[in-house]
Amino acid sequence: PPPPSGAALPPSLPPYFVKGSIIQLANGELKRVEDLKTEDFIQSAEISSDLKIDSSTVERIEGSRTSPDFAVVQFSVGEHRSQVSVEVLVEYPFFVFGQGWSSCCPDRTTQLLELPCTKLSVGDVCISLTLKNLK
């Protein structure tokens, strides 16, 4: 059945990436998703008691074997360069340090979410989270 109220987001594409969504930073400040800067994430993580920001470098991007709508992105995470692969919709946006929102298919991201977006490429360093006291 068609989605209600004209919403046409594919499943598993969260609503907070739609342009104009209101995001609350750790200090209580409210910003639109498209206005977020690298510093907003860094400062929020500094305030956070349990989350820390890790640098995740894109090592490989390939199409999913199960669906053309998905891509598999392999990251090298943190100082230990742990290898982590995630399967995401091609329009799923990641925040690249010093650059902003990027996805495997920025045209689709802009079309579906109206979120200004650049092309995610191998070598890009994305913001990711881990637990502070993970030992």
Partner: peptide, 19 residues
């Protein structure tokens, strides 16, 4: 208008501990 926490926008990439 819904307000979303900042950390919901960031993928949680927990590296597997190898040590």
């Amino acid at each position: 208008v819904p307000v979303f926490p900042w950390h919901s926008l960031v993928p949680f990439l927990a590296p597997t501990q190898s040590d």
